[in-house]
Design a binder for these strands. Structure first.
Length: 216
DNA sequence: TAGTTACG
DNA sequence: GGCT
């Protein structure tokens, strides 16, 4: 077990387990931390509203997304990329909430902060097809995923799309780290159990994806 | 192919 | 569960 000092309270974090090269930390965030994080994300969404983007192929994604940080991940008919400003408001993305940066540091041990905190909202029926995170400049840094709200079936594969996959039901407060060989592994969300968590009053799932985008 | 649907 |  690993103990971490946060203010006056010593918090015991779960040990990770390895699944197909992914590091999975069930129950990383306490219920209180999850509630505080949702509150922080409401602030992010107030500054940078969720949008339902489309893929380069012109199809609407089922998830709604926004970002925090120096860069946000966006997609439209022009392609996948990172942008310094929100596609609708034109304003810079809001800062990454402090507790998200704390989580990143605790789980990765890295001094370097992430450039992007992508916020994905999965409403009823939303899912995300198998894909790789490969729009970043340096794959040496891990990608960290944080789950909040409804449970979701997460499928993990390998670096080839045809590789065998393994699925796990992610619950609110779980953290997954994609690093090393799993950094470029295919992954996706097959379905969400709508209403399975009471963290978000209207139901739904929020996923945070933390990434280093540009090295310098 | 960060999608959708059919099939086993 | 995983094909395309």
């Amino acid at each position: 077990m690993e103990a971490e000092k946060t203010g006056r309270t010593a918090v015991t974090r779960p040990e990770g387990v390895e699944i197909r090269g992914f590091r999975y930390f069930p129950g990383w965030l306490s219920p209180e931390e999850q509630t505080a994080l949702v509150e922080a994300l409401r602030g992010v969404a107030a500054e940078a509203p969720f949008v339902q983007p489309e893929t380069p192929g012109g199809r609407k994604m089922s998830v709604r997304m926004t970002s925090a940080g120096r860069l946000g991940w966006v997609t439209d008919r022009r392609g996948y990329r990172y942008e310094p400003c929100h596609p609708v408001t034109g304003r810079p993305w809001p800062p990454v909430p402090g507790m998200v940066l704390d989580l990143w540091r605790a789980v990765t041990g890295l001094v370097r902060a992430p450039d992007c905190c992508l916020v994905n909202f999965y409403g009823e029926g939303a899912k995300m097809g198998l894909h790789q995170d490969r729009d970043e400049g340096d794959f040496g840094f891990p990608v960290v995923s944080v789950s909040l709200g409804d449970e979701a079936l997460f499928r993990m594969g390998g670096t080839d799309r045809a590789d065998r996959t393994e699925s796990v039901w992610l619950k609110s407060g779980d953290v997954v780290v994609m690093g090393g060989a799993a950094r470029l592994a295919f992954h996706g969300i097959d379905r969400v159990r709508h209403g399975s968590s009471r963290l978000l009053p209207q139901g739904g799932r929020i996923n945070l994806t933390l990434r280093v985008v540009q090295v310098p």
